[in-house]
Design a protein around this nucleic acid. Structure first.
Lengths: 143, 143
DNA sequence: ATGCCAATGAATGTCACTTTCATGATGGCG
DNA sequence: CGCCATCATGAAAGTGACATTCATTGGCAT
């Protein structure tokens, strides 16, 4: 799966006439082996220890590229930071966000999706995408 | 309903030992007679023509007060601005957001709410609040 | 190896808040 | 009514998270 995404990204890059660089390789590796909902800052700090020569701007621009290439998606969970989520083709899910520890869980619910379609149809709305987030305390923080 | 909210706000203010001022009265009036999803900037500009003496900071602080008093709620729809929505007691709704014209519609769906509770329960999650937004083209913009 | 064009990173700019601070109002009290 | 402790206001400065600029570096096709 990591391999598949590297392929997707490489294809995207060559298709756009963009170059392969050490930094991009490192950032992609690090992204793919990270938490599924990482902010620019978090990824930048994670890299900094091993690769102090990679700048914030490069991480920022590279994550944007991932999003354009379709292997990442920008998300906002209300903590003031944009987070980049791993995208697997054809997959969609929603989120449970812990307001205490920041933990993010994913879930899927086909019925909810269908009901959303119905709502949109009844209003003449053409759905492009949606977001559903449930905020509260995770099982761990409830103790 | 406007009257009721003014009462709620007045009570909140006196309970907190805060003062009634011309500016706050004007901002409250303007807020209550506005679109249901207004940003600080929008409300500020709306006021500016008639009351050039009211500063941005005052609008900003007053909207925060409305939120604390429970007559408004802060919302993010991904356009980079915080919007303040009118809150009616005990009412909850979700949103359809037009990505072309910015139009925001509200909807309620009891079944979706229940399914969310089920999802949260199955994960041991204690729900505080949730947000569901459907982005796409409104009936008008589809033409 | 060479040259063109993209990539990098330090620095700077932008935007939407958010806070500060000197000045101006409010309202309880005598 | 007048005093004055507080709160409120608004211009300006500060913040934080991006987003862009620009001089320099570095891929890679030839």
């Amino acid at each position: 799966m990591k391999r598949a995404k590297k392929k997707v990204f490489a294809d995207f890059m060559s298709q756009r006439g963009l170059k392969s660089t050490k930094q991009r390789d490192i950032i992609l590796d690090s992204f793919l082996s990270s938490d599924r909902h990482l902010s620019i800052e978090e990824l930048y700090l994670k890299l900094r220890s091993k690769h102090p020569n990679i700048g914030y701007a490069t991480v920022y621009r590279t994550l944007k590229l991932f999003a354009e290439a379709g292997i990442a998606r920008e998300m906002q969970f209300g903590d003031g930071q944009t987070r980049y989520e791993h995208v697997s083709e054809g997959e969609h899910h929603d989120h449970l966000v812990c307001t205490r520890c920041g933990h993010i869980e994913e879930f899927e619910n086909e019925t909810i999706e269908k009901l959303q379609d119905e709502v949109a149809n009844s209003r003449g709305f053409l759905i492009e995408r949606h977001r559903l987030e449930i905020y509260g305390l995770c099982a761990n923080c409830r103790k």
